[in-house]
Amino acid sequence: MKKQGMLNSEIAKVISDMGHTDTIVIADCGLPIPDGVKKIDLALKIGTPSFLDVLNELEKELMIERVTLADEMKTDNQPLFLTIKDKFTHCDYVSHETFKKETKKAKAIIRTGEASPYANIILTSGVIF
């Protein structure tokens, strides 16, 4: 039995299969999941697990080159936006509609219990060398 790190086997598998520029999404409980994209559903109830709980754990496991956020997060979820902006130096911003289209390219979407506006992020994998 694994004793530390990512215990969720589906998430661990997706991360270990990712290469440079592959993407994985962390989503609030309302983001639509495109057909054909793997959904890893962690949502237990509203707020659990939170978006930040999941993001903080993925940061430990994945080499993140850049992140993509919806422009709307800047005004409609400013506390979360400021937290993410402090964590990552390479942030891209797109409309929420474009964001949803970009999720079609993701290796997986991790659905959280988060219920705050635009609490979604696309993580682009970097390289470790």
Rank of each mutant, 00 (worst) to 15 (best):
residue 52 L to K: 13
residue 52 L to W: 05
residue 52 L to V: 15
residue 53 D to A: 15
residue 53 D to G: 06
residue 53 D to Q: 14
residue 53 D to P: 04
residue 53 D to E: 15
residue 54 V to Y: 05
residue 54 V to A: 09
residue 54 V to M: 09
residue 55 L to V: 06
residue 55 L to Y: 07
residue 55 L to K: 05
residue 56 N to S: 15
residue 56 N to M: 12
residue 56 N to G: 10
residue 56 N to A: 14
residue 57 E to Y: 10
residue 57 E to N: 13
residue 57 E to L: 15
residue 57 E to Q: 15
residue 57 E to H: 11
residue 57 E to C: 12
residue 58 L to I: 12
residue 59 E to K: 01
residue 59 E to V: 00
residue 59 E to Y: 00
residue 59 E to R: 00
residue 59 E to D: 02
residue 59 E to F: 00
residue 59 E to H: 00
residue 60 K to L: 07
residue 60 K to Y: 01
residue 60 K to V: 01
residue 61 E to M: 05
residue 61 E to Q: 13
residue 61 E to G: 04
residue 61 E to N: 07
residue 61 E to V: 02
residue 61 E to W: 04
residue 61 E to A: 15
residue 62 L to D: 03
residue 63 M to C: 14
residue 63 M to A: 14
residue 63 M to R: 12
residue 63 M to S: 12
residue 63 M to V: 15
residue 63 M to K: 14
residue 63 M to Q: 12
residue 64 I to E: 08
residue 64 I to Y: 08
residue 64 I to L: 13
residue 64 I to D: 06
residue 64 I to G: 09
residue 64 I to W: 09
residue 64 I to A: 09
residue 65 E to V: 05
residue 65 E to P: 07
residue 65 E to R: 11
residue 65 E to L: 14
residue 66 R to S: 15
residue 66 R to Q: 15
residue 67 V to N: 00
residue 67 V to R: 00
residue 67 V to G: 00
residue 67 V to F: 00
residue 67 V to S: 00
residue 67 V to W: 00
residue 67 V to C: 01
residue 68 T to N: 00
residue 68 T to K: 00
residue 69 L to E: 01
residue 69 L to Y: 02
residue 69 L to F: 03
residue 69 L to P: 02
residue 70 A to E: 03
residue 70 A to K: 01
residue 70 A to D: 03
residue 70 A to C: 02
residue 70 A to W: 05
residue 71 D to V: 10
residue 71 D to T: 13
residue 71 D to M: 10
residue 71 D to P: 05
residue 71 D to W: 10
residue 71 D to G: 06
residue 71 D to E: 13
residue 71 D to I: 07
residue 72 E to F: 02
residue 72 E to L: 04
residue 72 E to K: 05
residue 72 E to V: 02
residue 73 M to W: 09
residue 73 M to H: 09
residue 73 M to F: 07
residue 73 M to L: 13
residue 73 M to I: 06
residue 74 K to P: 01
residue 74 K to F: 02
residue 74 K to M: 08
residue 74 K to D: 02
residue 74 K to Q: 06
residue 74 K to Y: 03
residue 75 T to C: 08
residue 75 T to H: 11
residue 75 T to K: 13
residue 75 T to E: 15
residue 76 D to S: 11
residue 76 D to H: 10
residue 76 D to T: 08
residue 76 D to C: 10
residue 76 D to R: 12
residue 76 D to V: 08
residue 76 D to E: 13
residue 77 N to M: 07
residue 77 N to R: 08
residue 77 N to C: 08
residue 77 N to K: 08
residue 78 Q to T: 15
residue 78 Q to I: 07
residue 79 P to R: 12
residue 79 P to V: 12
residue 79 P to H: 07
residue 79 P to F: 04
residue 79 P to E: 04
residue 80 L to F: 05
residue 80 L to Y: 07
residue 80 L to P: 06
residue 80 L to E: 07
residue 80 L to G: 06
residue 80 L to Q: 11
residue 80 L to T: 11
residue 81 F to A: 08
residue 81 F to H: 15
residue 81 F to P: 09
residue 81 F to M: 10
residue 81 F to V: 08
residue 81 F to C: 10
